[in-house]
Computed example of a mutant assay.
Amino acid sequence: MAVLLEGNEVQTSGELPKVGEMAKDFQLTATDMSTKTLADFKGYQLIVITFLSVDTSTCSSELREFNKRATALENTKVLCVSRDLPFTQQRFCGAEGIDNVVMLSDFKNGSFAKNYGLEMVDGPLQGLPSRNIIIINKEGKIQYTQQVPEVSHEPDYEEALNAL
């Protein structure tokens, strides 16, 4: 699969999971350095967003938008996944007043991005996740996916939230 980075094609490690498939388990690091897995969110509908880094303007705008919208979502958790260090994620959220989303880091080995087919495998940002939204229902099945074609653009928020 390919995405664009400022108009240049970049390959990803595969394709996003198919709607109806069971979500793959993961091990991600929370801002308190604990390890979180899919089982930690059992019984919740999950909106998993992946992005390059909290230190980019588009990513920070996306986080602010999901933080704002997350307050109205019942029995739903918004998981924000990047390869930023947990300390960076925590600092960003503190400075921005972001407290309605769960920040998770894939910094240890990038296995989330690889296993979900969204790691950029070439180009200047090789190893980082492309910009995506994956919705996992309460039963652990993939309900919706969106891979943003140009990683420097924000996702289609309305389309994703309408899929809930």
Rank of each mutant, 00 (worst) to 15 (best):
Q11P: 06
Q11F: 14
S13M: 07
G14I: 05
E21V: 01
A23M: 03
D25L: 08
F26W: 10
F26E: 05
T29W: 05
T31R: 03
D32T: 06
M33Q: 14
T35K: 15
T35C: 08
D40L: 07
D40R: 07
G43Y: 14
Y44D: 06
I49M: 03
F51T: 00
S53L: 07
S53C: 04
T56M: 10
T56Y: 07
T56P: 01
S61Y: 02
R64N: 12
N67M: 04
R69C: 09
A70D: 02
A72D: 11
L73E: 03
T76A: 05
T76H: 09
T76W: 07
K77E: 06
L79Q: 06
V81F: 09
V81H: 08
D84V: 07
F87Y: 13
Q89G: 02
Q90A: 15
Q90Y: 15
F92A: 00
E96T: 01
E96S: 09
G97A: 10
G97W: 08
G97I: 03
I98E: 01
D99S: 13
N100T: 00
N100M: 02
L104R: 05
D106A: 07
F107Q: 08
F107I: 04
K114R: 15
Y116I: 01
Y116M: 04
E119Q: 14
V121W: 09
V121R: 12
G127K: 13
P129T: 15
N132H: 15
N132V: 13
N132W: 14
I134T: 15
G140I: 07
K141V: 08
T145P: 03
T145N: 04
V148T: 11
V148W: 08
P149K: 15
P149C: 13
V151A: 11
H153I: 04
